[in-house]
Structures are given as structure tokens and as C-alpha cells.
Computed example of a mutant assay.
Amino acid sequence: MTELRTEGLSYGIGGRHLVDDVDLTATHGETVGLVGPNGSGKTTLLRCVYGTLPPTHGRVLLDGDDLHAMGAKARARRIATVPQDGQAGFELTVREVVAMGRSPHKRFWEADTGTDAELVRSALTRVGVADLAERGFASLSGGERQRALMARALVQQPSLVVLDEPTNHLDIRYQLEILSLVRELGTTNLLALHDLNLAAYYCDRIYVLAAGRIVASGTPKEVLTADLLHAVYGVSAEVSIHPATGAPTVVYLPSTHARPPVEHNSTTM
């Protein structure tokens, strides 16, 4: 049973808090979404969770273990990350990049096994890039790189998957396929999303960030309201329940008068 928990998590630089006193949980098998405007702290929070940024204050706990007290390799055995923009500088094939997901489970320079090769083959097929296996990673489009990095996360066999805008660069078919795959993994998942309708459909719970703080949390139905969208995003919207999916659906309304976001201090639990 895998549970992620942050306790009073903060990260500051230059006297400014980019993430400020965040308490968050993601329980076993849950898909938990982070939403909020640009600059709200989503990516910084995820980087604190998966270990590339050390928190200024607070802790990140996975099954009660402090992740920042672990070595990088021990952390990588338990957490897989899919970054927002996969670096295109790898002078490796797609197959080799995906196979890197097995490295946390190996000794230095230990050769790949037949089991490793099968895990890589299966992951490439599952995310729809098997035909690109021998292509250079740097030659891929942004969407192809994103799917290859998802395959790398799969072969890592983690208990927690952290994804920063996993649908970036993807057309709608692959957006839906990748998010469906995330939910089918059986892992605990924490992901940042810009698209509120995707978050409403694929996330069990949502945390809303503004200026580095959590301003609302709960199920999509509890969180995604017209009042909150105006308060946090400064937009007018209608929110209804879709008759087929049962999920909230957000329709943005054009306005001739731009309204700035207002301070939103309450938290929905």
C-alpha cells in the first residue's frame, strides 16, 4: 500500500516562497491532480516531491519514509517521473532511453537481461511507440518524446508516478490514452495538468494551487466551481455535470471585461 504525504512543504528562493506550507496526500492507487494558473507552483512542488529540489521546510513522505533522506537510486526504485518537456539532447535510441528505466534496479554497468528487454518491448508497445524503437531520441517530436518517457517510467516499475503536464505536445487521442494508462497502472499517481476538463475526468481528487499555496482540495465535483475558477483564474465559466461521464465539465465564457483573480483563502476538504 503506497501513500504519498507532504507535511508543511515549502520551497523558497531569493526570499520568495514558490511553494508555501503545502499539506497533500495521495493514497494507494489514487490519481491526484494539481491544477492552478501559470506560476502557481505546480512544477516546483512536483520537483520537491521527486527529489530534484530540496524543500526549504517540511517533509515529503512515502509510506512514512522521508524521501529526501534517501539516496537518488533508492528514491528512483520507488518513484518514476515524467517531466513536462523531455530533453532532446540524448544521443541514444528510443529503446536505449526507455531501458534507462531499469537502471535503479541494477548494479553499475550490469547488463540488461531478457526480462529487461521484454519489459522495454512491452512498454514501447503500450504507449504506441514500438515502431520508433531504433530512432534517435533527439529526432522525435515533442509528443513522441513524451510517450517514450512514459514508457521509461513503466519499465521502472515504481509505486509512485509523478507527471508534470504529461499531455503536453500530445494530440487529443494520445492525451486520452496516456491518462487512461496512468489510471490503469495501479500505482499512486500525482500529476500537474492545465486542462481542467481532463483533470475532472481522470483525477480522483484535485488540489488547486495559487501563489504556491493550496487554496482548495477535494473531488473534482467539490473543487471545480464557477466561483473558484473566477477567484483563482480570473475567468467566467459555467460548470455542469456531463451526462455520459458524470464528471464536471467546464465551459469558459468570453468576457468584455477582464477580471483579475481575487484572494482565495478557503480550502474545500
Score class of each variant (00 low, 15 high):
Met150Pro: 06
Leu224Pro: 04
Ser159Asn: 11
Asn38Asp: 05
Val19Asn: 01
Arg47Ile: 11
Thr56Glu: 08
Glu263Val: 07
Gly29Ser: 08
Ala210Gly: 02
His257Asp: 04
Leu149Ala: 07
Gly143Cys: 08
Leu18Thr: 12
Leu170Pro: 03
Pro158Glu: 00
Ala130Asn: 09
Ser217Met: 05
His264Gly: 03
Asp20Glu: 10
Ile241Glu: 15
Arg78Gln: 04
Arg152Gln: 06
Arg121Trp: 11
Ser40Leu: 08
Leu229Ser: 14
Leu160His: 06
Tyr233Ile: 10
Tyr50Arg: 10
Val97Ser: 06
Thr188Asp: 11
Gly101Ser: 02
Leu179Trp: 01
Ser217Lys: 13
Lys73Leu: 03
Glu184Gly: 06
Asn38Pro: 02
Pro104Glu: 11
Pro54Asn: 12
Val60Tyr: 11
Ser122Tyr: 09
Ser141Trp: 12
Ala138Lys: 05
Arg75Asp: 00
Ala88Ser: 09
Thr113Ile: 03
Tyr233Phe: 12
Leu253Ala: 01
Pro83Tyr: 04
Arg135His: 05
Val94Trp: 02
Leu209Glu: 00
Lys221Gln: 15
Pro260Val: 00
Arg102Val: 15
Gly212Tyr: 11
Tyr11Arg: 12
Gly212Pro: 02
Ile178Met: 09
Gly33Asp: 01
Ser180Pro: 03
Ser103Tyr: 11
Thr267Glu: 06
Arg16Glu: 13
Ile178Val: 13
Thr219Ser: 03
Gly128Arg: 01
Arg126Gly: 01
Asn189Tyr: 02
Asp204Asn: 11
Val127Phe: 01
Val94Gly: 04
Ala88Asn: 08
Asp66Ala: 15
Gly51Trp: 00
Ala80Ile: 07
Ala192Gly: 09
Gly36Ser: 13
Asp63Ile: 14
Ala148Ile: 05
Leu92Val: 05
Asp85Glu: 13
Arg95Asp: 04
Thr27Ala: 10
Gly33Gln: 01
Leu229Arg: 15
